[in-house]
Design a protein around this nucleic acid. Structure first.
Lengths: 188, 188
DNA sequence: TAATATATAGAACGATCTGTCCATATCAAT
DNA sequence: ATTGATATGGACAGATCGTTCTATATATTA
Protein backbone atom coordinates (compact mmCIF):
# COMPACT_ATOMS: atom_id res chain seq x y z
CA UNK A 1 0.00 0.00 0.00
CA UNK A 2 2.21 2.75 -1.25
CA UNK A 3 -0.36 5.53 -1.44
CA UNK A 4 -2.22 4.48 1.66
CA UNK A 5 0.60 5.15 4.11
CA UNK A 6 0.81 8.68 2.86
CA UNK A 7 -2.92 9.13 3.30
CA UNK A 8 -2.84 7.69 6.78
CA UNK A 9 -0.19 10.19 7.75
CA UNK A 10 -2.25 13.07 6.40
CA UNK A 11 -5.33 11.74 8.18
CA UNK A 12 -3.56 11.56 11.51
CA UNK A 13 -1.92 14.94 11.00
CA UNK A 14 -5.24 16.60 10.20
CA UNK A 15 -6.92 15.18 13.28
CA UNK A 16 -4.10 16.20 15.61
CA UNK A 17 -3.41 19.59 14.06
CA UNK A 18 -7.08 20.41 14.36
CA UNK A 19 -7.29 19.23 17.95
CA UNK A 20 -4.05 20.53 19.43
CA UNK A 21 -2.51 22.98 16.98
CA UNK A 22 0.42 22.74 14.62
CA UNK A 23 3.40 23.51 16.84
CA UNK A 24 1.95 21.64 19.80
CA UNK A 25 1.58 18.46 17.75
CA UNK A 26 4.88 16.59 17.61
CA UNK A 27 6.05 14.30 14.86
CA UNK A 28 6.06 11.30 17.19
CA UNK A 29 2.42 11.79 18.06
CA UNK A 30 1.47 11.81 14.40
CA UNK A 31 3.48 8.65 13.79
CA UNK A 32 1.82 6.87 16.72
CA UNK A 33 -1.64 7.90 15.52
CA UNK A 34 -0.92 6.87 11.94
CA UNK A 35 0.89 3.68 12.92
CA UNK A 36 3.89 4.37 10.71
CA UNK A 37 7.62 4.65 11.21
CA UNK A 38 9.56 7.87 11.23
CA UNK A 39 11.45 7.15 8.04
CA UNK A 40 8.19 6.55 6.20
CA UNK A 41 7.10 10.07 6.97
CA UNK A 42 10.35 11.53 5.70
CA UNK A 43 10.14 9.43 2.56
CA UNK A 44 6.81 11.01 1.68
CA UNK A 45 7.38 14.53 3.04
CA UNK A 46 10.63 16.39 3.19
CA UNK A 47 9.79 18.17 6.45
CA UNK A 48 7.05 18.75 8.98
CA UNK A 49 6.12 21.96 7.20
CA UNK A 50 5.69 19.94 4.04
CA UNK A 51 3.32 17.61 5.86
CA UNK A 52 1.39 20.57 7.23
CA UNK A 53 1.06 21.92 3.71
CA UNK A 54 -0.16 18.59 2.34
CA UNK A 55 -2.64 18.30 5.18
CA UNK A 56 -4.00 21.78 4.53
CA UNK A 57 -4.30 20.98 0.85
CA UNK A 58 -6.45 17.98 1.65
CA UNK A 59 -8.43 19.98 4.18
CA UNK A 60 -9.16 22.62 1.58
CA UNK A 61 -10.51 20.10 -0.91
CA UNK A 62 -12.58 18.16 1.60
CA UNK A 63 -13.95 21.21 3.33
CA UNK A 64 -15.17 22.90 0.19
CA UNK A 65 -16.61 19.68 -1.15
CA UNK A 66 -18.50 18.99 2.07
CA UNK A 67 -19.70 22.59 2.24
CA UNK A 68 -21.10 22.65 -1.27
CA UNK A 69 -22.74 19.26 -0.84
CA UNK A 70 -24.35 20.32 2.43
CA UNK A 71 -25.59 23.56 0.91
CA UNK A 72 -27.10 21.81 -2.09
CA UNK A 73 -28.84 19.26 0.10
CA UNK A 74 -30.29 21.95 2.33
CA UNK A 75 -31.89 24.33 -0.14
CA UNK A 76 -33.36 24.24 -3.64
CA UNK A 77 -33.38 27.90 -4.61
CA UNK A 78 -30.21 29.94 -5.19
CA UNK A 79 -31.30 32.46 -2.61
CA UNK A 80 -31.94 29.69 -0.11
CA UNK A 81 -28.47 28.31 -0.71
CA UNK A 82 -26.88 31.59 0.26
CA UNK A 83 -28.51 31.25 3.66
CA UNK A 84 -27.88 27.51 3.83
CA UNK A 85 -24.17 28.36 3.98
CA UNK A 86 -24.79 29.45 7.55
CA UNK A 87 -26.83 26.37 8.43
CA UNK A 88 -23.99 24.20 7.19
CA UNK A 89 -21.61 26.13 9.40
CA UNK A 90 -23.98 25.70 12.34
CA UNK A 91 -23.71 21.93 11.93
CA UNK A 92 -19.94 22.26 11.87
CA UNK A 93 -19.85 24.39 15.04
CA UNK A 94 -21.95 21.78 16.83
CA UNK A 95 -19.43 19.01 16.25
CA UNK A 96 -17.51 18.19 19.38
CA UNK A 97 -14.17 18.31 17.61
CA UNK A 98 -14.79 21.82 16.32
CA UNK A 99 -11.71 23.93 17.06
CA UNK A 100 -12.15 26.75 14.59
CA UNK A 101 -10.93 27.08 11.02
CA UNK A 102 -7.66 25.25 10.40
CA UNK A 103 -6.52 27.96 7.98
CA UNK A 104 -7.23 30.84 10.31
CA UNK A 105 -5.43 28.94 13.05
CA UNK A 106 -2.48 28.18 10.78
CA UNK A 107 -2.00 31.82 9.85
CA UNK A 108 -2.22 32.74 13.53
CA UNK A 109 0.51 30.26 14.46
CA UNK A 110 2.91 30.91 11.61
CA UNK A 111 2.77 34.65 12.02
CA UNK A 112 5.17 35.82 9.37
CA UNK A 113 7.09 32.63 8.64
CA UNK A 114 6.19 29.99 6.13
CA UNK A 115 4.84 31.84 3.15
CA UNK A 116 3.44 28.69 1.52
CA UNK A 117 1.15 28.09 4.47
CA UNK A 118 -0.05 31.70 4.35
CA UNK A 119 -0.67 31.34 0.63
CA UNK A 120 -2.61 28.10 1.15
CA UNK A 121 -4.87 29.79 3.70
CA UNK A 122 -5.50 32.77 1.44
CA UNK A 123 -6.29 30.39 -1.42
CA UNK A 124 -8.86 28.51 0.65
CA UNK A 125 -10.65 31.71 1.61
CA UNK A 126 -10.50 32.93 -1.96
CA UNK A 127 -12.06 29.72 -3.31
CA UNK A 128 -14.84 29.84 -0.76
CA UNK A 129 -15.60 33.41 -1.75
CA UNK A 130 -15.65 32.32 -5.39
CA UNK A 131 -18.19 29.62 -4.56
CA UNK A 132 -20.39 32.10 -2.72
CA UNK A 133 -20.10 34.46 -5.66
CA UNK A 134 -21.41 31.72 -7.96
CA UNK A 135 -24.41 31.23 -5.70
CA UNK A 136 -24.98 34.99 -5.57
CA UNK A 137 -24.84 35.22 -9.37
CA UNK A 138 -27.37 32.41 -9.73
CA UNK A 139 -29.58 34.24 -7.27
CA UNK A 140 -29.49 37.28 -9.50
CA UNK A 141 -27.25 39.64 -7.56
CA UNK A 142 -26.01 42.44 -9.77
CA UNK A 143 -22.69 42.54 -7.89
CA UNK A 144 -22.15 38.91 -6.88
CA UNK A 145 -18.57 39.43 -5.77
CA UNK A 146 -19.49 42.23 -3.40
CA UNK A 147 -22.24 40.15 -1.80
CA UNK A 148 -19.88 37.18 -1.59
CA UNK A 149 -17.26 39.24 0.23
CA UNK A 150 -19.81 40.45 2.77
CA UNK A 151 -21.22 36.99 3.42
CA UNK A 152 -17.69 35.67 3.67
CA UNK A 153 -16.93 38.22 6.36
CA UNK A 154 -19.95 37.05 8.31
CA UNK A 155 -18.92 33.41 7.95
CA UNK A 156 -15.39 34.06 9.19
CA UNK A 157 -16.69 36.18 12.01
CA UNK A 158 -19.08 33.41 13.01
CA UNK A 159 -16.24 30.88 12.98
CA UNK A 160 -13.99 32.81 15.34
CA UNK A 161 -16.89 33.74 17.61
CA UNK A 162 -17.97 30.12 17.85
CA UNK A 163 -14.37 29.20 18.64
CA UNK A 164 -13.60 31.90 21.19
CA UNK A 165 -16.95 32.20 22.94
CA UNK A 166 -17.75 28.53 22.47
CA UNK A 167 -21.06 29.71 21.11
CA UNK A 168 -22.36 27.64 18.18
CA UNK A 169 -25.32 30.03 18.00
CA UNK A 170 -23.11 32.58 16.26
CA UNK A 171 -23.97 30.76 13.03
CA UNK A 172 -27.61 31.65 13.50
CA UNK A 173 -26.76 35.23 14.39
CA UNK A 174 -24.65 35.52 11.27
CA UNK A 175 -27.50 34.04 9.30
CA UNK A 176 -29.85 36.72 10.53
CA UNK A 177 -27.47 39.42 9.38
CA UNK A 178 -26.93 37.62 6.08
CA UNK A 179 -30.66 37.52 5.45
CA UNK A 180 -30.79 41.31 5.68
CA UNK A 181 -27.84 41.68 3.31
CA UNK A 182 -29.27 39.22 0.81
CA UNK A 183 -32.61 40.98 0.95
CA UNK A 184 -30.94 44.31 0.28
CA UNK A 185 -28.83 42.92 -2.57
CA UNK A 186 -31.53 40.94 -4.36
CA UNK A 187 -34.52 43.07 -3.51
CA UNK A 188 -37.57 41.93 -1.56
CA UNK B 1 12.08 51.54 39.40
CA UNK B 2 10.14 48.64 40.76
CA UNK B 3 7.02 48.95 38.61
CA UNK B 4 8.80 50.00 35.47
CA UNK B 5 10.71 46.77 34.91
CA UNK B 6 7.48 44.88 34.95
CA UNK B 7 6.00 47.26 32.42
CA UNK B 8 9.01 47.02 30.18
CA UNK B 9 8.69 43.26 30.14
CA UNK B 10 5.03 43.47 29.22
CA UNK B 11 5.82 46.03 26.52
CA UNK B 12 8.47 43.83 24.95
CA UNK B 13 6.30 40.74 25.24
CA UNK B 14 3.37 42.46 23.55
CA UNK B 15 5.49 43.64 20.65
CA UNK B 16 7.08 40.24 20.08
CA UNK B 17 3.96 38.15 20.66
CA UNK B 18 2.13 40.30 18.15
CA UNK B 19 4.91 40.07 15.60
CA UNK B 20 5.99 36.46 15.85
CA UNK B 21 3.40 34.57 17.86
CA UNK B 22 3.37 33.23 21.40
CA UNK B 23 5.17 29.91 21.07
CA UNK B 24 7.64 31.23 18.54
CA UNK B 25 8.74 34.02 20.87
CA UNK B 26 11.29 32.70 23.38
CA UNK B 27 11.89 34.07 26.85
CA UNK B 28 15.42 35.14 25.94
CA UNK B 29 14.18 37.29 23.10
CA UNK B 30 11.78 39.09 25.40
CA UNK B 31 14.56 39.67 27.92
CA UNK B 32 16.86 41.09 25.28
CA UNK B 33 14.13 43.41 24.00
CA UNK B 34 13.19 44.56 27.48
CA UNK B 35 16.78 44.82 28.67
CA UNK B 36 16.20 42.81 31.83
CA UNK B 37 17.65 39.71 33.41
CA UNK B 38 15.97 36.35 33.50
CA UNK B 39 15.50 36.32 37.24
CA UNK B 40 13.70 39.65 37.07
CA UNK B 41 11.12 38.14 34.81
CA UNK B 42 10.54 35.22 37.15
CA UNK B 43 10.29 37.57 40.09
CA UNK B 44 7.37 39.34 38.47
CA UNK B 45 5.71 36.43 36.69
CA UNK B 46 5.64 32.85 37.80
CA UNK B 47 5.79 31.43 34.28
CA UNK B 48 5.73 32.38 30.63
CA UNK B 49 2.00 31.68 30.55
CA UNK B 50 1.60 34.14 33.38
CA UNK B 51 3.44 36.77 31.35
CA UNK B 52 1.27 36.03 28.34
CA UNK B 53 -1.79 36.51 30.48
CA UNK B 54 -0.54 39.82 31.88
CA UNK B 55 0.31 41.01 28.38
CA UNK B 56 -3.14 40.11 27.11
CA UNK B 57 -4.70 41.90 30.04
CA UNK B 58 -2.85 45.07 29.13
CA UNK B 59 -3.67 44.59 25.47
CA UNK B 60 -7.34 44.31 26.30
CA UNK B 61 -7.38 47.56 28.26
CA UNK B 62 -5.32 49.53 25.76
CA UNK B 63 -7.15 48.21 22.73
CA UNK B 64 -10.60 49.03 24.01
CA UNK B 65 -9.48 52.43 25.23
CA UNK B 66 -7.91 53.28 21.87
CA UNK B 67 -10.94 51.98 20.01
CA UNK B 68 -13.46 54.03 21.97
CA UNK B 69 -11.31 57.14 21.75
CA UNK B 70 -10.91 56.73 17.99
CA UNK B 71 -14.63 56.18 17.52
CA UNK B 72 -15.54 59.23 19.55
CA UNK B 73 -13.11 61.41 17.66
CA UNK B 74 -14.42 60.20 14.32
CA UNK B 75 -18.15 60.72 14.65
CA UNK B 76 -20.56 62.87 16.61
CA UNK B 77 -23.82 61.01 16.27
CA UNK B 78 -24.45 57.62 17.89
CA UNK B 79 -25.33 56.17 14.53
CA UNK B 80 -22.14 57.55 13.02
CA UNK B 81 -20.13 55.96 15.80
CA UNK B 82 -21.45 52.53 14.94
CA UNK B 83 -19.92 52.94 11.49
CA UNK B 84 -16.81 54.65 12.81
CA UNK B 85 -15.97 51.35 14.47
CA UNK B 86 -15.03 50.10 11.02
CA UNK B 87 -13.04 53.19 10.14
CA UNK B 88 -11.02 52.75 13.31
CA UNK B 89 -10.36 49.15 12.31
CA UNK B 90 -9.32 50.31 8.86
CA UNK B 91 -6.62 52.49 10.44
CA UNK B 92 -5.47 49.49 12.46
CA UNK B 93 -5.29 47.22 9.40
CA UNK B 94 -3.15 49.80 7.64
CA UNK B 95 -0.47 49.74 10.30
CA UNK B 96 2.62 47.90 9.16
CA UNK B 97 2.81 45.86 12.35
CA UNK B 98 -0.75 44.60 11.96
CA UNK B 99 -0.75 40.83 12.46
CA UNK B 100 -4.37 40.19 13.29
CA UNK B 101 -6.13 40.14 16.65
CA UNK B 102 -3.87 38.99 19.48
CA UNK B 103 -6.79 37.25 21.20
CA UNK B 104 -7.92 35.36 18.12
CA UNK B 105 -4.30 34.34 17.55
CA UNK B 106 -3.87 33.27 21.16
CA UNK B 107 -6.91 31.02 21.07
CA UNK B 108 -5.64 29.54 17.81
CA UNK B 109 -2.25 28.71 19.33
CA UNK B 110 -3.42 27.38 22.69
CA UNK B 111 -6.03 25.14 21.16
CA UNK B 112 -7.44 23.44 24.20
CA UNK B 113 -4.75 24.13 26.76
CA UNK B 114 -4.53 27.12 29.02
CA UNK B 115 -8.06 27.91 30.06
CA UNK B 116 -7.12 31.33 31.49
CA UNK B 117 -5.93 32.50 28.08
CA UNK B 118 -9.13 31.29 26.46
CA UNK B 119 -11.15 33.08 29.14
CA UNK B 120 -9.18 36.29 28.63
CA UNK B 121 -9.90 36.21 24.89
CA UNK B 122 -13.58 35.56 25.44
CA UNK B 123 -13.70 38.42 27.93
CA UNK B 124 -12.12 40.83 25.45
CA UNK B 125 -14.66 39.96 22.77
CA UNK B 126 -17.49 40.20 25.28
CA UNK B 127 -16.42 43.67 26.44
CA UNK B 128 -16.16 44.92 22.87
CA UNK B 129 -19.64 43.64 22.18
CA UNK B 130 -20.86 45.41 25.31
CA UNK B 131 -19.35 48.66 24.06
CA UNK B 132 -21.01 48.28 20.68
CA UNK B 133 -24.27 47.53 22.43
CA UNK B 134 -24.00 50.81 24.32
CA UNK B 135 -23.53 52.67 21.06
CA UNK B 136 -26.47 50.82 19.53
CA UNK B 137 -28.67 51.69 22.49
CA UNK B 138 -27.73 55.35 22.23
CA UNK B 139 -28.56 55.18 18.54
CA UNK B 140 -32.03 53.96 19.44
CA UNK B 141 -31.89 50.31 18.44
CA UNK B 142 -34.70 48.38 20.03
CA UNK B 143 -32.51 45.29 20.37
CA UNK B 144 -29.03 46.75 20.92
CA UNK B 145 -27.45 43.44 21.89
CA UNK B 146 -28.58 41.77 18.69
CA UNK B 147 -27.19 44.56 16.55
CA UNK B 148 -23.96 44.53 18.57
CA UNK B 149 -23.52 40.81 17.97
CA UNK B 150 -23.98 41.22 14.24
CA UNK B 151 -21.59 44.15 13.97
CA UNK B 152 -19.12 42.22 16.11
CA UNK B 153 -19.25 39.33 13.67
CA UNK B 154 -18.44 41.71 10.83
CA UNK B 155 -15.54 43.23 12.76
CA UNK B 156 -14.01 39.85 13.55
CA UNK B 157 -14.53 38.70 10.00
CA UNK B 158 -12.82 41.83 8.73
CA UNK B 159 -9.88 41.24 11.07
CA UNK B 160 -9.18 37.71 9.89
CA UNK B 161 -9.71 38.65 6.26
CA UNK B 162 -7.29 41.54 6.55
CA UNK B 163 -4.81 39.18 8.18
CA UNK B 164 -5.12 36.23 5.81
CA UNK B 165 -5.65 38.01 2.52
CA UNK B 166 -3.48 40.96 3.54
CA UNK B 167 -6.34 43.12 2.42
CA UNK B 168 -6.92 46.19 4.60
CA UNK B 169 -9.91 47.01 2.43
CA UNK B 170 -11.94 44.36 4.23
CA UNK B 171 -12.69 47.04 6.82
CA UNK B 172 -14.47 49.08 4.17
CA UNK B 173 -16.32 46.06 2.89
CA UNK B 174 -17.46 45.24 6.40
CA UNK B 175 -18.51 48.84 6.82
CA UNK B 176 -20.72 48.61 3.75
CA UNK B 177 -22.46 45.57 5.17
CA UNK B 178 -22.74 47.23 8.56
CA UNK B 179 -24.43 50.24 7.04
CA UNK B 180 -27.16 48.00 5.67
CA UNK B 181 -27.63 46.28 9.02
CA UNK B 182 -27.72 49.56 10.93
CA UNK B 183 -30.21 50.97 8.46
CA UNK B 184 -32.42 47.92 8.92
CA UNK B 185 -32.16 48.04 12.71
CA UNK B 186 -32.70 51.76 13.20
CA UNK B 187 -34.98 52.45 10.30
CA UNK B 188 -34.22 54.80 7.42
C1' DT C 1 14.08 -18.56 -5.19
C1' DA C 2 16.40 -14.36 -5.49
C1' DA C 3 16.33 -9.48 -5.80
C1' DT C 4 14.47 -5.07 -5.07
C1' DA C 5 11.83 -1.76 -2.89
C1' DT C 6 9.68 -0.30 1.08
C1' DA C 7 8.40 -0.31 6.05
C1' DT C 8 9.92 -0.97 10.75
C1' DA C 9 11.70 0.38 15.57
C1' DG C 10 14.41 3.14 17.80
C1' DA C 11 18.97 5.18 18.81
C1' DA C 12 21.45 9.40 18.20
C1' DC C 13 22.25 14.38 17.16
C1' DG C 14 21.85 19.15 17.43
C1' DA C 15 19.08 22.75 18.42
C1' DT C 16 15.87 25.21 21.26
C1' DC C 17 13.09 26.13 25.11
C1' DT C 18 11.50 26.98 30.04
C1' DG C 19 12.78 27.47 34.51
C1' DT C 20 16.43 27.36 38.49
C1' DC C 21 20.58 28.63 40.71
C1' DC C 22 24.57 31.51 41.91
C1' DA C 23 27.73 35.06 42.68
C1' DT C 24 28.09 39.89 41.83
C1' DA C 25 26.59 44.65 41.42
C1' DT C 26 23.65 48.62 42.29
C1' DC C 27 21.23 51.76 45.14
C1' DA C 28 18.05 53.63 48.53
C1' DA C 29 17.23 54.11 53.42
C1' DT C 30 18.54 53.92 58.05
C1' DA D 1 28.74 53.34 56.51
C1' DT D 2 25.87 49.33 56.65
C1' DT D 3 21.99 46.87 55.61
C1' DG D 4 18.53 44.94 52.64
C1' DA D 5 16.08 44.64 48.66
C1' DT D 6 16.46 44.27 43.83
C1' DA D 7 18.73 43.64 39.27
C1' DT D 8 22.39 41.46 36.59
C1' DG D 9 24.57 38.05 33.50
C1' DG D 10 25.32 33.63 32.61
C1' DA D 11 25.76 28.81 33.64
C1' DC D 12 22.95 24.90 34.28
C1' DA D 13 19.51 21.11 34.28
C1' DG D 14 15.72 18.90 32.19
C1' DA D 15 12.76 18.34 28.63
C1' DT D 16 11.14 18.39 23.83
C1' DC D 17 11.52 18.88 19.14
C1' DG D 18 12.73 17.91 14.13
C1' DT D 19 15.75 15.33 11.51
C1' DT D 20 19.17 11.76 10.24
C1' DC D 21 20.91 7.24 10.50
C1' DT D 22 21.39 2.21 11.20
C1' DA D 23 19.96 -2.30 11.06
C1' DT D 24 16.16 -5.44 10.54
C1' DA D 25 11.91 -7.16 8.62
C1' DT D 26 8.31 -7.68 5.07
C1' DA D 27 6.34 -8.11 0.67
C1' DT D 28 6.20 -7.75 -4.26
C1' DT D 29 8.08 -9.09 -8.63
C1' DA D 30 11.24 -11.18 -11.85
Amino acid sequence: MPQSKREHLIDAALTLFNGYGYNATGIDRILAEAGTAKMTLYKHFKSKDDLILAALRRRDEEFRLRLSRAVESMADTPRGRLLALFDAHADWFDKENFRGCMFINAVAEFANLSEPIQAMAAENKRLIRAYISELAAEAGANDPDALAVELGLLLNGAIVSAQIDRSPESAGQARNAAAVLVEAALGG
